[in-house]
Design a binder for these strands. Sequence first.
DNA 1: GGCCAGGACACCA
DNA 2: TGGTGTCATGGC
Length: 223
Amino acid sequence: MTMLTTIFERLLERYGHREWWPAESPFEVCVGAILTQNTNWGNVEKAIANLKAADCLTPSAIATLPPQELAALIRPAGYFNVKARRLQSFCTSALAAGQGDLERLFAQDWRQLRQWLLAVNGIGPETADSMLLYAANRPSFVVDAYTRRIFSRLGLVDETIAYEPLRSFCMQQLPEDPALYNEFHALIVEHGKQQCRPRPRCADCCLAIQCNHQRQQNRQTGG
DNA sequence: GGCCAGGACACCA
DNA sequence: TGGTGTCATGGC
């Protein structure tokens, strides 16, 4: 039993199964992973609804759509020009590498697939790991801003820790299990939204572990 | 009106 | 290698 498995169990007890990723297909997961970059998920849902309504939620449709038309469809997700370029970059590359078949692309060794994804313009480590875990069901732990905030406030890592070291830290403490990684990241996001906000500082944390912010608050209030 | 949201990249010192 | 600016919408 590691600290992370304890945290996982407490989060699961508090929030229950999250049923992630909210998408109807692996490809929709990939699109959502790009669209959600630095953006509220509610805005992403609007953009995906627009793509569906326009019958454009396929690799070939996105790859061949005029960039301005694609940007207009995904406008609610923000950064629409950047994300249109990134979506087309991913779809064009995926169609070429998988010979038009996303399943064929995802069937390869997942560590090689991760390197391939990271080489696609607009796919960074978090987006790549989200695709690997939630679209390809591979055991690649997803680290995001919530993960860094929660674990650093608990004193487990430094708040400035880079992506790869934090990912390694998590994976070393957990069994290599896609279902566990899937649930854990979803729970971290839920906890981040509800109880570990940037400000006001977190309080009454369901993890029942006094985090750095709570210690700081107690010192300030004499509590 | 400001903060925040399931980042990534180009550029510069 | 690390810091900074840029990309942008929508809810609260």
